[in-house]
Amino acid sequence: TTFEIRVGDLRITLHNADEEEIRWAEEALRRGIHADEILRTLEERRR
């Protein structure tokens, strides 16, 4: 599944994310964390 998060002009697309990952990514985007860093962190958490 694919889920797109939008916060203002910012956007990130997550693939195969669970609800916790989606909530975490949305909050991180709101705090101004760059999408590349969010994706990198999620990848590390999945390992």
Rank of each mutant, 00 (worst) to 15 (best):
W24F: 13
T41R: 14
E37G: 05
D9F: 03
V7C: 09
A17Y: 02
D18L: 11
F3Q: 15
H34E: 13
I33T: 13
L29K: 01
T1I: 14
I22S: 04
T2K: 11
I5F: 01
E37N: 09
A25I: 07
E26I: 13
E27T: 09
R11D: 04
R46S: 07
I22E: 03
E20D: 12
E20H: 13
R11Y: 14
E26D: 04
E44H: 10
R23P: 02
A35G: 13
E21F: 13
T41S: 12
L39T: 06
I33Y: 08
E4D: 03
E44F: 04
R47C: 13
E4W: 01
L29V: 09
R6K: 14
E19Q: 13
E20N: 11
T2A: 15
E43A: 13
R47H: 12
L14P: 00
L14F: 03
G32F: 06
E20G: 12
I12R: 01
L29Y: 03
E4N: 00
I22F: 06
I38V: 10
I38A: 02
N16F: 10
E4V: 03
R45L: 10
N16G: 06
G8R: 01
F3G: 15
L42H: 04
T1F: 14
A35Q: 09
N16Y: 05
R47G: 11
A25Q: 00
A17L: 06
E43G: 10
A25C: 04
N16P: 02
G32T: 02
E44A: 09
L10P: 00
G32I: 02
R23M: 11
I5Y: 00
F3C: 15
D36N: 06
A25V: 13
G32P: 01
R45H: 09
E19D: 13
I12G: 01
L14R: 00
T13K: 03
T13F: 01
L14H: 00
L39H: 13
T1C: 15
L29N: 02
A28H: 08
A35W: 02
W24N: 02
E19R: 07
H15P: 03
V7L: 07
T41G: 11
L14N: 00
R45V: 09
T13V: 12
T2S: 15
E43W: 04
T1Y: 08
E27M: 06
E26Q: 07
H34K: 11
E20S: 12
A25R: 00
F3Y: 09
N16E: 06
E20K: 12
R45A: 13
E44S: 09
R45S: 11
L10I: 14
I12L: 13
I5K: 02
E37P: 02
R45K: 13
R6A: 15
L39G: 03
R23I: 10
I5P: 15
L29D: 01
H34N: 12
F3L: 15
L10M: 14
E44K: 07
I22P: 00
H15Q: 05
A35N: 11
I5G: 02
G32D: 04
H15Y: 14
E21I: 06
A17K: 02
T41C: 10
L29W: 03
R40Q: 12
E37W: 06
E21S: 10
L42A: 02
H15D: 05
I38L: 09
A35Y: 05
I12P: 00
A25T: 10
I5E: 15
G32E: 05
R46D: 06
H34S: 14
T13W: 01
E26G: 12
G32S: 05
E37S: 08
T1R: 08
I38F: 06
R40H: 12
D18V: 12
L14A: 01
A35T: 10
R30A: 07
A17R: 03
R46P: 04
L42N: 01
I5V: 13
T1P: 15
I22W: 04
T13I: 09
E27I: 07
L29H: 02
N16S: 05
E37K: 08
R31F: 09
N16L: 04
A17T: 08
E4P: 15
